[in-house]
Design a protein around this nucleic acid. Structure first.
Lengths: 333, 333
DNA sequence: GTGAAAGCGCTAACAG
DNA sequence: CTGTTAGCGCTTTCAC
């Protein structure tokens, strides 16, 4: 098969210890030996066996990334950020999709323990009961991604979802809308719950009436379905705010198909500001989150926690969402 | 820290060998012992150290996925498929973005070797010189993803890009278009080269004139830029075919901004049929590829190759692309 | 500056 | 059916 450290040692006429030193502490080896060994390594195409190395040293250079679904454009961006930042530090990333299922999440966590990852970046699929002690006891760092924690014993990187909900309603209210439909997923998802909290708080202040339309999954198809429910409301709202852009795209399709004009008849506002918003039938106004940045920051934070465990101070970083106004929201007629 | 196999053995009053048997060959252990050991395992929260296991057994349960960019919706879908299929077989997936750079690709390959992955699924960033012998010599299976190989010594799962190019031109030609712009990326990308080949072949048969507009990156921004070049052509084409949907969205934006109507003034056809096509300003006609299915198939093929190495017959699976007609293409006036 | 040797946690072969 | 033991490939003392 392939060369191992002993082969290199034999070939170069040195001991395994010396080869190991060449790999890990080249400054401690004499230049002559160093060069000879390195040449042999190249010649044999030797790549150290990560298992053995990590088994001995106790640490891997891998992290786990657990997100609800990479196919969700927001998390795609986050994942890309995580991967870039990890790669820069020579860490490899395990990708796991939990599909918001606690069962899948636990299964993955167990796999990640087996793989002896150094740390885990996770967007919990459930607001309560973060049973991550299990991981910490094993010396695996855990940082929360896109989720806030009040727990000072762990790092988190999140976006202020309450504020996001507020910004949305404030924006729509400032355009004169007083009846707004809020189309969103299950409240068990922390981000959803927070956005709802922000929506309700801002609605109270702005004296806006909110009709909540609940969908099971926040995708485009369910957005289109939601339109029927909106049309069935006692009073047609003059603006619709959606829990994410996917949902908003679906709603947009449903409205246009029903002959309802955006933003003339109804304003539509999304959340996430995914790349396609600008190419939509009606360019979509949205609440923007720094997804890529979120991923980069989280990965850097996690890796720094992994590597300087003693001196590490846990941080809770919170980004602020921003309104991106395009064509789908306008003054109420 | 955390319990190891020896701790379990001691606690349960058996030998390490027995615990190992409980883990790997439970049928060989007496029911009484089995139960006792399993209880101890649960009690101690023992999870076997994957390194040690794999170091000893020689095999990991991980695969590497190397794609140009997960943020590209096509590859996002593929990645999701790969992850789902791998997870079903209890494999973990390393995610790597090569950004079409050979250097990055090699760096990742080296990382994957270190991680001792069992197999690698890769979309090569370069049509020539697939130096994957290195991996095979190390017993790492390699399967090509979204790339065809004539080499019978490896598996590949791809979509017929030549045919895709043909379908596109045949469709546009059937609508009466005789001057078509082909907006696409560098020919070093195999998929691009194949689609171009299909375009040219079909164009010859249908007696269509093709003007090629080359962009460096196949994203939305460069699509918008490309519109300037299209408008500068001696003769304005009546249809535009884009190398992927991202590019097409950019072109769409550029055309609309220039006051050009789609499909009245010009037909626009994309490639990939990403989920947002339907939500675009003008619902985008596109050439559809079974991305998720591609990922699932590739992962299954790779894993089966890994596990039944001797009896494995290499397969080259090729999916067929399909035309999805929406509103952006129409008969030439 | 280099070599020898002891394990990291586990599996697998072999004895009992 | 269970226990003992020899490594997997590497890092890391500790001598020399």
């Amino acid at each position: 098969m392939s060369a191992n450290l002993r082969d290199v040692a034999r070939q170069a006429g040195v001991s395994v210890g010396t080869v190991s030193n060449v790999l890990n502490r080249p400054d401690v080896v004499s230049p002559k030996t160093l060069e000879r060994v390195q040449k042999t390594i190249a010649q044999l195409g030797f790549v150290p066996n990560g298992f053995a190395r990590q088994l001995r040293s106790g640490y891997s250079r891998t992290i786990g990334l657990v997100v609800p679904d990479v196919a969700n454009p927001f998390f795609t961006e986050v994942a890309r950020g995580v991967e870039d930042a990890a790669s820069k530090r020579d860490y490899a990333v395990f990708l796991c999709n939990s599909d918001e299922s606690l069962e899948k999440e636990n299964k993955y966590l167990s796999v990640l323990i087996q793989q002896q990852v150094r740390g885990v970046l996770i967007t919990p699929s459930d607001s309560k009961s973060h049973q991550y002690e299990n991981l910490r006891e094993r010396g695996i760092s855990v940082a929360l991604l896109d989720t806030e924690t009040k727990n000072a014993s762990q790092c988190s990187v999140s976006v202020d979802d309450v504020r996001g909900g507020e910004i949305a309603i404030e924006h729509l209210a400032s355009l004169g809308h007083r009846e707004i439909a809020w189309v969103t997923g299950p409240e068990t998802i922390p981000q959803v719950a927070d956005r709802t909290a922000g929506v309700m708080r801002a609605a109270k202040i702005a004296k806006v009436e909110i009709s909540t339309i609940r969908v099971a999954l926040m995708n485009s198809a369910q957005g289109t379905d939601a339109v029927k429910k909106i049309l069935a409301l006692k009073k047609m709202p003059s603006a619709i705010f959606c829990g994410n852009d996917l949902l908003a795209f679906g709603v947009m399709r449903g409205l246009l198909d029903a002959g309802i004009k955006i933003p003339e008849d109804v304003s539509l506002l999304g959340y996430d500001d995914i790349a396609f918003g600008n190419s939509a039938a009606v360019p979509l106004s949205s609440i923007s989150q720094p997804a890529y940045q979120l991923g980069v920051t989280a990965a850097e934070l996690l890796i720094s926690e992994c590597e300087e465990n003693e001196v590490h101070a846990h941080q809770q970083i919170k980004f602020q969402p921003q309104l991106v106004m395009r064509a789908s929201t306008a003054t109420k007629k």
